[in-house]
Each structure stands twice: as structure tokens, then as C-alpha cells.
């Protein structure tokens, strides 16, 4: 009998299938590897894009999957960046363990701040995310003796990756290192969101009060994903420090929090790959536009935001999906 106890019902199998790997998911990775060979002169920009994708991905876990709107996600990016920088200055110059250390420390910062602020909701929570980031920014700004203040933190070096690959001037090592870290983090993120815990976050995002009535420990779950998101953002920040050997104060700025939010929204929230699409396009356009006239960039970015809120839902990925469905439906 096919209806045996171990064989799930077709409906359940259909849900399971939604989470299995599809061929298209290889595309961003193939493109990233291809870019390494095709654009050897742009590898520094490429590493920055990969790092920002990781940062955006971490926000997607928090915002896209758990529905926590943060105006201060840069707090964690910045803490990770400064942690990696300060560790290196203190003599901890091995990059991979430094990265892990930064992730752990940022995770604790996320846990502590999440524990404190996630008991609030709505606007108050929005303000608190903003305030936490503003406070850390001010600390980094004023503790110039340690952080370098507005001059930033520089003059740190790292030992070769795995003892073999030096961080070269062309950014080859940095690029591949960033890509590898992004891949590992992405696999973790994908695993988390397709777990029962990840599904329960979707329930909390849709209706936290109902989840409470189902007996779910809502705050605990939110704190958990906030901690993971913080840690991942911290690893992105640390990666930026290690690949650029520099920490700028702006890693903690409101502009940074705003930018990562915009990148995620442009790509599409709650989809994981939205982080890839939105960040890559944002960074590439910014790189070419902002060099000549920075204010024009903000002008068109502003319009892009306004129009995308008015006319698109689900970001660029959402637009692609709708287009694909429209094409499929159009077939005779």
C-alpha cells in the first residue's frame, strides 16, 4: 500500500517540494564565480558587493522572515567590523578565527539588545532599533582613543588565509574568501528558514497574537532570530574589515541602516535571493552614479523608492515572479 505510515500525503510532499533545491538557485553562484574571471579589475567592488549581500541577507532573516522592522541593523554590522579591527590590532591576526570571534561577540550584542527591545512593538520598536544604533555610533565616534573616531580604524594586517593565500592588492583572495563565507552563511540561513522554527517565524510575522494563543514563545523566537541575524551582520562587518584593512565610522551610521533596508526591499523581502538581486544592482548603479554626482544618485534612488512602494510589491524578485507567471499564463 502506498498509504503507509512513512509515506507523506501528496499535499505534505508538495509543501516539502517547495523547499527543495531548484536549478535556478545555482545561478547567482555561477555568476559570482564567472565574475571572478571576467572582471579581474573589479574584484574589490565585487568583494564589497558579496559582503553587502551577506549583510542584507542577515536583515532578511530579521525583517523578511520574522517581520522585525529595523532602522538600526548597521549596529551589528558595525560592531562586527570594529571587533575584527580591534582584535587584529590586539594581535589576533588570523582571519577565520577572527571572523568567528566577531560573529560570536556580535551575536551576544544582538541577544542582549534583542532581549531588551523586543518586548516592545510597532513604532516603539522602530525607534529603539534606531536608538541602539545611534548610541553605538556615538560611542564609536567619541571613544576615539580606541576606535579612531571619525578617522576610522586603520593599520591592521592579517595573516594569509589558511596560512596559504595572502590578501593581495587585486583583491583575489578577498573576493574568494567573501564568496566562500557568503555561501556558508547562505546555506545556514536557508536551512533555518526552511526548518519548523523558520516556519513558525512566518506565523509570527503574519500574526504574533495568534501564535501566542497557539502557545508559541513568541518573544523567545524573535530574540533567537534577532541574535542569528545580528551575528550574521557582524560576520559581514568583520569580513569588510579583513578585506579592506580599514573600519570607517559610517559602518554604524543611519545611512548604512537605511541602505541595507533599501537593498533588501529593492530585491524583495522574505525570499533570501532578494538580498542578492537588490544589493548587486544597488551597489553597481551606486558605484557608477555616485562617483560623478553623489546627489543625483540620491535623487533617483529616492524616486525609485517612492515608485517601488507605489507600484511594485515584493521587490525586483516579485516583479520577476509576476512576469514569469504572466508569461506562463499567456501561452495558448
Amino acid at each position: 500500500m502506498p498509504e503507509g505510515a512513512t509515506i507523506p500525503h501528496p499535499a505534505v510532499a508538495a509543501l516539502a517540494r517547495r523547499q527543495t533545491w531548484r536549478a535556478i538557485e545555482a545561478l547567482p553562484w555561477v555568476l559570482a564565480v564567472a565574475a571572478y574571471f571576467v572582471f579581474p579589475a573589479y574584484l574589490n567592488l565585487g568583494s564589497q558587493i558579496l559582503i553587502m549581500i551577506l549583510f542584507t541577507l542577515s536583515l532578511d532573516l530579521v525583517l523578511g522572515y520574522a517581520g522585525i522592522i529595523s532602522l538600526g541593523h548597521a549596529a551589528f554590522f558595525g560592531v562586527g567590523a570594529y571587533t575584527a579591527g580591534l582584535l587584529a590590532q590586539a594581535g589576533w591576526v588570523e582571519p577565520i578565527s577572527g571572523l568567528i570571534a566577531a560573529g560570536v561577540i556580535t551575536g551576544f550584542v544582538g541577544l542582549a539588545s534583542g532581549f531588551v527591545i523586543l518586548r516592545t512593538h510597532g513604532l516603539t520598536l522602530l525607534m529603539l532599533t534606531l536608538a541602539v544604533a545611534a548610541m553605538l555610533h556615538e560611542i564609536a565616534n567619541k571613544a576615539a582613543a580606541i576606535t579612531g573616531g571619525t578617522d576610522g580604524l586603520h593599520g591592521m594586517t592579517f595573516t594569509p588565509l589558511l596560512g596559504l593565500f595572502r590578501f593581495d592588492l587585486f583583491g583575489r583572495t578577498a573576493y574568494l574568501y567573501s564568496l566562500a563565507v557568503l555561501l556558508v552563511m547562505f546555506l545556514i540561513a536557508r536551512r533555518i528558514v526552511s526548518s519548523p522554527f523558520g516556519r513558525s517565524l512566518a506565523g509570527i510575522r503574519e500574526n504574533p497574537i495568534r501564535m501566542q494563543a497557539l502557545g508559541a514563545p513568541v518573544s523567545l523566537r524573535l530574540i533567537a532570530i534577532y541574535t542569528v541575524g545580528a551575528s550574521m551582520a557582524g560576520i559581514a562587518g568583520a569580513l569588510l574589515t579583513q578585506t579592506s584593512q580599514f573600519v570607517a565610522l559610517r559602518v554604524l551610521s543611519f545611512e548604512m541602516s537605511g541602505a541595507v533596508l533599501i537593498m533588501l526591499i529593492l530585491g524583495g523581502v522574505g525570499r533570501l535571493y532578494g538580498a542578492f538581486v537588490g544589493t548587486a544592482i544597488y551597489m553597481i548603479v551606486q558605484d557608477s552614479a555616485a562617483k560623478t554626482t553623489p546627489y543625483y544618485w540620491y535623487f533617483w534612488l529616492g524616486w525609485l523608492l517612492v515608485l517601488s512602494v507605489l507600484f511594485t510589491r515584493g521587490g525586483l524578485i516579485g516583479v520577476f515572479e509576476r512576469a514569469r507567471k504572466a508569461v506562463a499564463a499567456w501561452k495558448p
Binding site: V12, A16, S194, S195, P196, G198, R199, G215, A216
Partner: peptide, 22 residues
């Protein structure tokens, strides 16, 4: 979601949802 809360499965952040015996 409800069943997973009752059984405690919802706290699991590492295994696949909708897998065998879910």
C-alpha cells in the same frame, strides 16, 4: 504551525520542515 507548537517541533531550527513523519 499549531501541531508543531504542541509537539515542540517548532523549536527546531535545523531540520527540514515537512520532512518524513512531520
Amino acid at each position: 504551525l499549531a501541531v508543531a507548537e504542541r509537539t515542540g517541533a517548532a523549536a527546531n531550527g535545523w531540520s527540514r520542515a515537512y520532512g518524513p513523519a512531520d
